[in-house]
Computed example of a mutant assay.
Amino acid sequence: MRIFLAGATGVIGSRLLPLLVAAGHDVTGTTRSAERAGMIEKAGGTPVVVDVYDVEALTAAAVKSRPELVMHQLTDLPDDAADIPARATANSRMRTEGTANLLAAALAAGGARMLAQSIAWTPPGRGDAVAWHEAAVLDAGGVVVRYGQLYGPGTYYETEPPAPARIRVSDAAQRTVPLVEAASGVVVLADPED
């Protein structure tokens, strides 16, 4: 399957990309940073440096890759969890405007299906953006993947797991791979005991 992976160098995307390639998929991965494009290539993907807010460039990149699936793994989160409240508006924009731009790019690319990450909890004061994001993906016939809070290397919880719902980041990536064939709907990925 040809997959356009938006956010291929992020916490989940960087783990997901080599798994998708190993499963036989042809993956075009996006990054905003030219310095990170090599990570995508090393993992077996075709890198594209593009910003999700540049609609024209994003659409051109998606059309060129001819995807059957657009996978939205983009967030706009800070490196330090203490800064999340200050960056809430930026992450909400990713869920609304970023999602709208990816849906438009998928449509321009021939109506590629959409699989988009979401969260298995409601963040204080940002529930409207999450609800809009999920409704837009479902209205387009896509799949919403609600991840529990991520833990493990490269996450906010590297040494101690957070409260449920949670999922080890490597498990989140592995359990996402088969969802490329999932029917439209909502899937929750969390540790089995949660």
Rank of each mutant, 00 (worst) to 15 (best):
M1K: 14
R2W: 00
I3R: 01
A6P: 06
A6S: 09
A6V: 09
G7V: 03
G10R: 05
V11F: 09
L20H: 04
A22E: 13
H25N: 06
D26R: 15
D26P: 08
V27L: 05
T28E: 05
G29K: 06
T30E: 00
T31I: 11
T31W: 10
R32T: 15
R32P: 08
S33K: 12
E35P: 08
E35K: 12
R36L: 12
A37E: 05
A37W: 07
A37C: 04
M39I: 12
K42Q: 14
A43T: 05
G45D: 03
T46Q: 13
P47I: 12
V49D: 02
D51R: 10
V52I: 15
Y53L: 13
Y53A: 08
E56G: 11
A60K: 14
K64V: 14
P67Y: 02
P67L: 01
P67T: 02
P67G: 02
E68V: 09
L69T: 09
H72V: 12
L74I: 15
T75Y: 07
D76P: 05
P78Q: 02
P78C: 03
P78M: 03
P78F: 00
A81F: 09
A82M: 06
I84G: 02
R87A: 15
T89W: 13
A90Q: 14
N91M: 00
N91C: 03
N91E: 01
S92T: 13
R93M: 10
E97V: 15
G98L: 07
G98V: 08
T99F: 08
A100Y: 11
A100I: 12
N101Q: 10
A104V: 11
A105L: 10
A105C: 10
A106G: 15
L107M: 13
A108T: 07
A108I: 09
A109D: 02
G110T: 07
R113Y: 01
R113E: 04
R113L: 01
M114T: 13
A116H: 03
A116W: 04
I119S: 07
W121M: 14
T122G: 10
P124E: 08
R126T: 14
R126D: 14
R126W: 11
G127I: 13
A129G: 08
A135K: 15
A136W: 10
L138Q: 10
G142H: 09
V143I: 07
R146T: 02
Y147N: 03
L150Y: 05
G152L: 01
P153C: 04
P153L: 06
P153M: 05
T155Q: 03
T155E: 04
Y157Q: 07
E158C: 02
T159W: 09
A163Y: 13
P164G: 11
R166P: 07
S170W: 10
D171T: 10
A172N: 03
Q174N: 12
R175E: 06
T176Y: 04
T176V: 07
V177T: 01
P178T: 01
P178D: 03
L179K: 00
V180Q: 01
V180M: 00
E181F: 11
E181M: 10
A183V: 12
S184Y: 10
V186N: 00
A190T: 07
D191S: 12
E193G: 04
